[in-house]
């Protein structure tokens, strides 16, 4: 009883608490959790994510059905799976950003978290995380395909993708996602950014190739300024010191600078 009395007294002795409760700031992990959820919670988002696994399965099946027996190696599976995923992952990154503008959800998102850099950081972390996890999922699907395929044909199971090569492929895909992310923050419109991605990834390299074939001076510097070309070494699994330098130089030009511009625009742009 005495304890109760003391408690009551303490409560009464306190000055009348008219102040409202002080709320804790929103941790970044919570924002990231919400952003992850938002990638899956629409039909289009769900199927985009599911398409990573689905295309990996389809590509694996196609390799088992159509590849000649002597080419039934892990590398063949990895290449077949890698191509569709390299296109899908940037779309995931693009839509994670542009949806806030194209679907106008930013009105709520940036009101509940009025520091846009935190939302954008969370989106970036989640997108890269999804990319890395997807690569491992694809890697496992490819491995199962390799075991199954060689068991069917009765040939030796060949594991000819090293951990280093796999990590380069992951890096290349993360770079692809960052390109998507960059186009997302720069263009902030879903169709526009997707078109931008195809121009960036398929039209520009072609133009660069044409230019290099006709202009000697451009061919000499192409590896230093053509980002797509500079990433080639990642897929070949041979990264020399020079190749890293070329990747960094071309990446600064085609990824870091436009990303910085895009982030600046996101921070200042009006959300309507």
């Amino acid at each position: 009883m005495s304890a109760v009395t003391i408690e009551t007294t303490t409560a009464v002795d306190r000055p009348a608490d008219t102040a409202r409760p002080v709320h804790a700031p929103i941790p970044l992990a919570r924002v990231a959790g919400v952003e992850l959820r938002k990638m899956f919670d629409t039909r289009s988002g769900f199927w985009l994510m599911a398409s990573i696994g689905i295309t990996a399965l389809l590509a694996t099946g196609a390799v088992i059905l159509f590849a000649p027996n002597d080419e039934l190696t892990y590398e063949t599976f990895a290449t077949a799976i890698g191509f569709p995923i390299a296109v899908i992952l940037p779309m995931v990154a693009i839509l994670a950003v542009t949806g806030e503008w194209s679907q106008r959800t930013g009105l709520t998102t940036f009101t509940l978290v009025p520091h846009r850099e935190r939302v954008i950081t969370a989106k970036l972390l989640v997108a890269v995380g999804v990319g890395v996890v997807s690569m491992f999922v694809a890697g496992v699907i490819g491995a199962l395909g390799n075991i199954l395929g060689t068991a069917i044909t009765g040939t030796d199971t060949i594991w000819n993708v090293s951990a280093v090569e796999f990590s380069y492929i992951i890096l290349a895909n993360v770079l692809g996602m960052l390109i998507g992310f960059m186009l997302g923050v720069l263009i902030r419109n879903s169709p526009g950014a997707i078109v931008g991605y195809f121009v960036y990834s398929f039209l520009l390299p072609t133009l660069s190739l044409l230019l290099a074939s006709s202009q000697q001076w451009f061919e000499d510097i192409q590896l230093w300024i053509d980002f797509n070309f500079a990433q080639g070494a990642l897929f070949e699994g041979e990264m020399s010191g020079e190749a890293w330098a070329q990747l960094a130089t071309a990446g600064t030009l085609w990824l870091v600078i436009p990303l910085a511009v895009g982030l600046g625009l996101v921070m200042r742009s009006e959300v309507k």
Binding site: R20, H23, A24, R104, T105, T111
Partner: peptide
């Protein structure tokens, strides 16, 4: 720190 706990905002119901 957590604006939604202090200010309820509805600017455009169609922006979803």
């Amino acid at each position: 720190p957590n604006p939604g706990r202090e200010v309820g905002v509805l600017l455009d119901a169609s922006a979803q």
